[in-house]
Design a protein around this nucleic acid. Structure first.
Lengths: 137, 137
DNA sequence: GTGCCATCTGTAGTGGCTACAGAAGCAAGA
DNA sequence: TCTTGCTTCTGTAGCCACTACAGATGGCAC
């Protein structure tokens, strides 16, 4: 267990060096030890935490949600109901986004179908975009 | 046709005053006339353009796409193939996003289902988030 | 000692707005 | 005419989640 320099950690996790330091600055990643010369030395736990952060962000969890989960003990702690609640809430948000996108998709699809691409007035695409329809949720 | 002050335009379109000025600055909205005292006076065409911009942004068109459509003659011009191409391209992007979200949704759903919420080790949620799966497209 | 890469800190840039400060326009009332 | 009070003006800074750069060290091989 010699510990990793930041470059090696970046290589292993695919997270930019600057982003790793940023995560530390904003409290998402624990401050690592330092060498005598002031360089960061990371432990295996940092690799796990960083992979977790990366994955959670890819899944669309907000930084605050990630922080919340990490503050519950982090990846190495046992699962608890709070983690589940956050995940369920996030799932709900994902489903809302899917619904919104589905509405947009069907609107665009049907509109594009009705457009000939000719230089006719009353283009259905422009027309649709000018009519300000309500965007609920 | 007296023309509108910026506040009235904001009220009619639901776009913040600062945002209207911002759209002008970045070239999405034509510079309006000014009163002797330097205040902006908008025409009916600005109302149409602003509604169009707002709607297109709500539908997820990028600022560049909006600018592209507007540069083709704007809402009042006849439809042309280029508008259709932009819309089709955007529709493609929307469908990609839907697929990505669907993957995330199913992963989250099945994972949450397997989590009891108890304080057990090997929590499926944490475990899933630690395994760095590739996120293609 | 020298060369050279890795790392350090601190600051500034990105996009798409949003918010504020301080000055000035402008209409109505005293 | 002067004041009050709202609206608008310009310009600058803030937001978030990073990303990029500048200039100074660390630390190892030769």
């Amino acid at each position: 267990m010699a510990g990793l320099m930041i470059g090696e950690l970046a290589r292993r996790t695919g997270v930019h060096i600057e982003t790793i330091r940023y995560f530390e600055k904003v409290g998402m990643l624990l401050k690592p030890d330092r060498t005598g010369g002031g360089r960061r030395v990371y432990a295996e736990s940092h690799v796990r935490a960083l992979n977790f952060i990366k994955r959670a962000r890819e899944l669309g969890f907000s930084p605050d949600e990630v922080r919340a989960i990490l503050s519950l003990g982090g990846p190495q702690a046992a699962c608890c109901d709070e983690v589940r609640q956050i995940a369920i809430h996030h799932l709900d948000q994902v489903r809302r986004k899917m619904l919104a996108l589905a509405r947009i998709e069907s609107l665009l699809t049907s509109t594009v179908e009705h457009c000939s691409g000719d230089h006719v007035p009353d283009c259905p695409i422009i027309e649709m975009m000018e009519s300000a329809a309500p965007q609920r949720a």
